[in-house]
């Protein structure tokens, strides 16, 4: 796989080596660091802006988390703000709105896990069972589309469909039922955001499962059919085991994200249902921190959230290993 350019060109100067011959152990000429830098300078220079970007916009902000331990005042800056130890953390935990946000986040995440997560799997199985590639392609190109629509547009569309003067209340009205506005019903909020997520990403989510389904050896199906397995038994014994690793991988990744349910989607709709039902951790951090200037406590919550997320990923991965699956690392080192 390696394009060891220079090394290759040095070797090809000895033309005696033919393709059939076993490659001899390379006479590795050790290059000094300066020589190697000289050899690679173009490649390093090309990668340098990217490195700079990741350092500045992904690693440097981590230092900014020190405001979680400060009474941060923007006019004083990082260096002159007072250090107050863990006070921000205790303040944040003492705020009932924080716990309400945690509860809302977990409820929404749970509803999405149960009702959104399986949806792409089901659609992928359905698409996979369609033999005509024309129909399959058509449905695929339709259902991938909403993924590329921004949340502002999606919420606008749902407002027209389900909102007070929208389609659903009018239909209910027409068949003699009371008008119902789902967009402003606090009790329905977790269901509403899950429904929107299904509309947006159910199709897109199938891509990874369809790829996994395609990689199942067709001979397995044939052998199972010859042995008398019905279509449902083939689904159970061939198809599902074939996509289990990818399902587990995505479940683990999902668990890691359980504390960050879609920020854009929720911030757009929080005020429709009120903070009591619509506030999640991310919107709480935004309103409390950036709008109200509570920098310290909000950054503290951000840190707690990141630690929990990482712990959940590692824990879920351990669990997957425990049950004999490869979990996340397979995806990482390939």
């Amino acid at each position: 796989m390696s394009f060891g350019g220079v090394r290759m060109s040095v070797e090809t100067e000895t033309p005696a080596v033919t393709a059939k011959e076993k490659p001899k152990p390379r006479p590795r000429r050790k290059l000094t660091l300066v020589q190697r830098l000289k050899r690679d300078k173009v490649m390093i220079l090309l990668a340098a802006p990217g490195l700079l970007y990741f350092l500045v916009f992904h690693y440097l902000p981590m230092l900014g988390n020190i405001v979680a331990f400060q009474d941060y005042q923007p006019y004083l800056g990082f260096l002159d703000s007072d250090w107050i130890g863990l006070e921000n953390f205790t303040d944040a935990f003492a705020d009932p709105r924080f716990w309400s946000a945690v509860t809302n986040t977990l409820v929404i995440a749970l509803v999405q896990l149960v009702f959104f997560f399986p949806a792409p799997i089901a659609l992928a199985l359905l698409l996979n069972s369609v033999l005509s590639s024309k129909i399959r392609r058509f449905v695929q190109s339709v259902v991938y589309l909403p993924h590329f629509i921004g949340w502002v547009i999606i919420v606008s569309i749902f407002q027209q469909l389900l909102g007070a003067a929208g389609l659903l209340p009018n239909v209910l009205d027409a068949i003699g039922l009371p008008r119902y506005d789902m967009m402003t019903d606090p009790d329905a909020f977790p269901w509403l955001v899950t429904l929107q997520l299904v509309w947006k990403d159910m199709g897109w989510g199938t891509i990874i499962f369809l790829a996994a389904l395609l990689s199942i050896d067709p001979q397995l199906y044939e052998a199972a059919a010859v042995d008398g397995a019905s279509r449902w038994r083939r689904l159970w014994h061939v198809t599902l085991p074939g996509i289990t690793p990818i399902i587990i991988l995505l479940l683990i990744l999902n668990l890691g994200n359980i504390l960050s349910v879609g920020f854009e989607q929720l911030i757009l709709q929080r005020d429709n249902v009120g903070a009591a039902a619509g506030e999640v951790l991310d919107t709480y951090v935004y309103f409390n921190g950036i709008q109200n200037g509570e920098w310290g406590p909000s950054a503290a919550i951000g840190i707690v959230k990141a630690i929990f997320g990482t712990a959940l990923i590692l824990g879920a991965n351990k669990l997957a290993h425990f049950f004999g699956h490869e979990g996340i690392y397979r995806g990482a080192d390939k």
């Binding site: 900014g64 951090v285 950036i290 920098w295 909000s298 990141a306």
Partner: peptide, 8 residues
């Protein structure tokens, strides 16, 4: 890093 540090 989180919303707050990125904003700052």
């Amino acid at each position: 890093a989180g919303i707050i540090p990125n904003f700052l």
